[in-house]
Amino acid sequence: MITPAIVRRNTPHRYRMEAQKCAACGKVFFPPRLVCTCGSRKFKAYALPSEGKVITHTVIRTAPRGFGDEAPYCMGIVELKDGSRVLCQIADCEPHRLKVGLQVTIEFRKIQEAGESGVIAYGYKAVPER
């Protein structure tokens, strides 16, 4: 679902990968939360690193509404250099290049749009070295 308010609300983490670190136990949360699994409610701002590796992957060939034009596209769970994980598309990647351990960098890409006339939602994708 893409609406102006949703796009705006998600800007800090989708645009800048803003995460948070629990002030008590040091656990990193992306996206930010209000309470840590340790019970603490105090967090420090923390920006995720932009490099990491693919720990699992797939190629989406049957896409959901809004993604049909891009299929087939690669997706994966990326473990960033600090151990944090994100799930995202792996852009500019031929399916045969996908493998566990593939080194990737986070790039800013268009993720979805609310139809031809609606707002555009941007965010992060992982891109392998060319």
């Binding site: 996206p31 989406i60 997706m75």
Partner: peptide, 25 residues
């Protein structure tokens, strides 16, 4: 997770496929 999975275009087959890839690996 609508904001952190579905938003990126993942599907249910896709999520289980990633479990499969990880299991096979």
């Amino acid at each position: 997770d609508q904001d952190y999975e579905a938003f990126h275009g993942v599907t249910f087959p896709g999520l289980y496929a990633m479990m499969a890839t990880a299991h096979m690996h």
